[in-house]
């Protein structure tokens, strides 16, 4: 497998680069006092044209918020800092709103993103940017096993599974250079799951970049090039897919190894304890309280991200 960023031997620029991203929410502590709650801290990730990067991690680790930050659709009480670039240029909130739905496509997790007052066929057609809108829409409906008469239905007339397929179809039918899919497949029939993931792979093979946010490592392994492992609001490791194999010794971070070993098809062993909540993050390494390699330094200093064996890791002692 070639290194990220190398397409036919030529180093290309990343399509999306996120550096040291932090997201905080202003919240009420008690009464009228407000406090800042940091939910994403020091997060870095890069996506190159032609690759699928899977973002995996436990619920509450900030996966969806990363997507929302890139798209600029965080709620009003969010404060964002850090560096985000798309196509080499800084992503300002103005650029985000012009890129959203054109250059950057989003498959949201919630079916509430469909317009309740518009027929779904028209919604998908509106997303088509090239060719005959009608033809393209009909083609993608067929691809996602949606009957012809579905185009004349309103979102409330759809089953959950159908609504999800419409969301996927609507997002993937356009001409976006970057596709961000936030848990696109839960609750779908296996054939549709396969079709969706296959379609994402196809889009990246055409030179686009795809960010696949999922809790399903198995799907990530099958369709992604690289996997970013999220924990408590940051990436602990970015690894190549091939590193997730055997006993997991090619992986760099102890948490990634634990995640791999915990799969039912592997050892099905867990870790004691729990992911620290935002607002109660340890001062040092975020994983230190559950780590078997834990040393004093881990308690004092939060490790910076460093390159290791063709991937990235955030650990003082990983080798």
């Amino acid at each position: 497998m070639s290194m990220p960023g190398e397409v036919s031997g030529v180093k290309t620029e990343p399509m999306l680069s996120v550096r040291e991203l932090s997201v905080s929410f202003i919240q009420y502590a008690r009464g009228l006092k407000q406090q800042l709650l940091e939910v994403i801290n020091g997060l870095s990730i890069e996506l190159y044209p032609g690759e699928v990067v899977a973002v995996v991690g436990s619920s509450g680790s900030g996966k969806s918020l990363l997507a929302h930050a890139v798209l600029g659709i965080l709620p009003g009480n969010a404060i964002v800092s850090g560096d985000m670039q798309f196509g080499g240029e800084i992503l300002t909130s103005k650029r985000q709103s012009t890129l959203r739905g054109t250059e950057i496509a989003f498959v949201p997790q919630s079916v509430n993103y469909l317009d309740p007052l518009m027929k779904v066929g028209a919604q998908v057609k509106a997303a088509v940017k090239q060719g005959s809108k009608r033809e393209v829409q009909q083609k993608i409906f067929k691809r996602y096993h949606l009957d012809k008469n579905v185009e004349n239905l309103y979102p409330f007339q759809l089953s959950g599974g159908m609504a999800r397929r419409i969301l996927v179809a609507g997002a993937l039918v356009g001409n976006a250079r970057l596709v961000i899919a936030d848990e696109p497949t839960p609750g779908l029939h296996p054939a549709v799951v396969k079709e969706t993931l296959h379609h994402l792979r196809e889009l990246s093979d055409e030179g686009r970049a795809v960010m696949l946010i999922t809790h399903d490592i198995k799907a990530a392994l099958e369709y992604a090039d690289r996997i970013a492992v999220f924990y408590a609001g940051t990436t602990l490791e970015t690894a190549n897919v091939a590193d997730f194999s055997g006993d997991g010794s090619d992986l760099r971070h102890p948490y990634s190894k634990a995640l791999w070993k915990a799969l039912p098809q592997n050892d099905f062993v867990s870790l004691p304890g729990f992911q620290p909540a935002s607002g109660e993050l340890p001062q040092g390494c975020l994983f230190a309280p559950r780590c078997h390699m834990f040393k004093d330094l881990c308690k004092e200093k939060r490790p910076k991200e460093r390159s290791l064996r063709g991937g990235k890791v955030r650990c003082h002692y990983a080798t």
Partner: peptide, 27 residues
């Protein structure tokens, strides 16, 4: 925060200037 970095109140925050500086609950 770096110079090239971005920091802004995300979309959707329309402040009423009348009670500037107070949070919603106080207002």
């Amino acid at each position: 925060m770096s110079k090239s970095g971005i920091s802004y109140l995300a979309a959707g925050s329309k402040e009423v200037r009348l009670f500037k500086g107070m949070n919603l609950r106080t207002k």
